[in-house]
């Protein structure tokens, strides 16, 4: 799982990779506009700046989940004129401003498709395969 940041026009701004080990996590925007990610697995809260820079990690008691994380759930969808929702026609996550609705632009294709676990493994396997093929063909000559 990853977190991506979009502006009010649906434009991709940044991506946040909290922890490659996965597990359940929750996100909250803190009052200074930074992003906080609470990991249930590690009982930690990681704080990121809006450009994706990691700022700090703090540990929390597992019986004492931060209260503000409970408040910011799927119901927090609106700020000013911008409303974020699933478009019923395209079933894509979209931003609505008045009567216009626009899907969020695809962000970070490289991060999503190449730099994930299987992408790295696949690229490595492809490289080894090419080396084997070229070695075997040279032996035949």
């Amino acid at each position: 799982d990853r977190v991506q940041l979009y502006d009010c026009n649906g434009k991709f701004k940044a991506a946040f990779q909290p922890d490659s080990a996965g597990g359940v996590f929750k996100i909250a925007a803190s009052p200074d506009q930074s992003l906080e990610i609470y990991s249930v697995r590690t009982n930690t809260v990681d704080t990121f700046a809006l450009d994706g820079t990691f700022l700090r990690r703090r540990s929390v008691d597992d019986r004492d989940m931060p209260f503000d994380f409970l408040k910011s759930g799927p119901s927090v969808k609106k700020a000013g004129l911008c409303e974020f929702e699933i478009d019923p026609i395209s079933s894509q996550f979209s931003v609505r401003k008045g009567t216009s609705i626009k899907p969020l632009e695809p962000g970070d294709w490289i991060l999503e498709n190449l730099l994930n676990y299987w992408g790295i493994g696949g690229t490595g396997a492809l490289g080894i395969g090419l080396m084997l093929v070229s070695t075997l063909r040279r032996d035949k000559l």
Binding site: D1, I27, K77, C82
Partner: peptide, 14 residues
Amino acid sequence: QVVVTESGDVFVKI
């Protein structure tokens, strides 16, 4: 999960 900031940016967990 979706979190909208006061400035109108949105964090989307995917």
